[in-house]
Deep mutational scan, measured.
Amino acid sequence: EQLARLKREFNENRYLTERRRQQLSSELGLNEAQIKIWFQNERA
């Protein structure tokens, strides 16, 4: 579920704002660094 949600977010926007990253962190139970790194890896 977390992965599917991250992929949906990535398809909508390849870059997250700090606020959006905080929201996802709270909703998915991941820390902000994990989300940031995931997005960086997807863009690579």
Rank of each mutant, 00 (worst) to 15 (best):
1 E>M: 08
1 E>R: 04
1 E>H: 08
2 Q>I: 15
2 Q>T: 12
2 Q>A: 14
2 Q>R: 07
2 Q>H: 08
3 L>K: 01
3 L>A: 05
3 L>V: 10
4 A>R: 10
4 A>F: 04
4 A>G: 04
4 A>V: 05
5 R>E: 05
5 R>T: 07
5 R>W: 08
5 R>N: 06
5 R>V: 14
5 R>Q: 08
6 L>H: 01
6 L>M: 05
6 L>A: 02
6 L>D: 02
6 L>T: 06
6 L>N: 01
6 L>W: 01
7 K>P: 02
7 K>M: 10
7 K>S: 05
7 K>C: 13
7 K>A: 06
7 K>W: 08
8 R>V: 09
8 R>H: 11
8 R>I: 13
8 R>C: 13
9 E>S: 03
9 E>V: 05
9 E>L: 06
9 E>A: 13
9 E>K: 05
10 F>L: 03
10 F>C: 00
10 F>W: 05
10 F>P: 04
10 F>I: 04
11 N>T: 07
11 N>S: 13
11 N>V: 11
11 N>G: 11
11 N>H: 11
11 N>I: 11
12 E>N: 11
12 E>C: 14
12 E>H: 11
12 E>G: 02
12 E>Y: 07
13 N>W: 10
13 N>T: 04
14 R>I: 09
14 R>V: 06
14 R>E: 06
14 R>L: 03
15 Y>H: 11
15 Y>Q: 06
15 Y>S: 06
15 Y>N: 08
15 Y>M: 07
16 L>D: 13
16 L>E: 07
16 L>H: 02
16 L>N: 03
16 L>G: 02
16 L>A: 03
16 L>Y: 02
16 L>I: 08
17 T>N: 09
17 T>W: 06
17 T>S: 14
17 T>V: 02
17 T>D: 13
17 T>Y: 03
17 T>P: 04
17 T>L: 03
18 E>A: 13
18 E>T: 12
18 E>G: 09
18 E>S: 13
19 R>P: 10
19 R>T: 13
19 R>W: 07
20 R>D: 07
20 R>E: 08
20 R>N: 03
20 R>P: 01
21 R>E: 07
21 R>F: 12
21 R>M: 15
21 R>T: 15
22 Q>H: 09
22 Q>N: 07
22 Q>M: 08
23 Q>Y: 08
23 Q>M: 10
23 Q>R: 10
23 Q>D: 08
23 Q>H: 08
23 Q>G: 05
23 Q>K: 10
24 L>F: 02
24 L>P: 00
24 L>S: 00
24 L>I: 09
24 L>A: 01
25 S>I: 11
25 S>M: 08
25 S>K: 05
25 S>R: 04
26 S>T: 12
26 S>D: 12
26 S>K: 15
26 S>R: 15
26 S>C: 06
26 S>Q: 14
26 S>N: 12
27 E>P: 02
27 E>H: 02
28 L>R: 00
28 L>W: 02
28 L>S: 03
28 L>H: 01
28 L>E: 01
28 L>G: 00
28 L>M: 06
29 G>M: 06
29 G>T: 02
29 G>W: 04
30 L>C: 10
30 L>H: 01
30 L>W: 09
31 N>K: 09
31 N>Y: 05
31 N>P: 15
31 N>C: 15
31 N>E: 12
31 N>H: 12
32 E>Y: 02
32 E>P: 11
32 E>A: 07
32 E>T: 07
32 E>V: 12
32 E>H: 05
32 E>I: 09
32 E>L: 09
33 A>M: 14
33 A>L: 14
33 A>P: 03
33 A>K: 10
33 A>S: 13
33 A>C: 15
33 A>Y: 13
34 Q>T: 14
34 Q>Y: 15
35 I>C: 00
35 I>W: 01
35 I>G: 00
35 I>Y: 01
35 I>D: 02
35 I>P: 00
35 I>T: 00
36 K>Q: 15
36 K>T: 15
36 K>M: 15
37 I>S: 11
37 I>H: 12
37 I>E: 14
38 W>V: 02
38 W>Q: 01
38 W>F: 10
38 W>I: 04
38 W>G: 01
39 F>T: 00
39 F>R: 00
39 F>A: 00
39 F>C: 00
40 Q>M: 00
40 Q>W: 07
41 N>P: 02
41 N>F: 07
41 N>D: 09
41 N>M: 13
42 E>H: 06
42 E>D: 04
42 E>A: 10
42 E>Y: 08
42 E>T: 03
43 R>I: 14
43 R>P: 02
43 R>D: 07
43 R>E: 10
44 A>P: 02
44 A>L: 13
44 A>W: 10
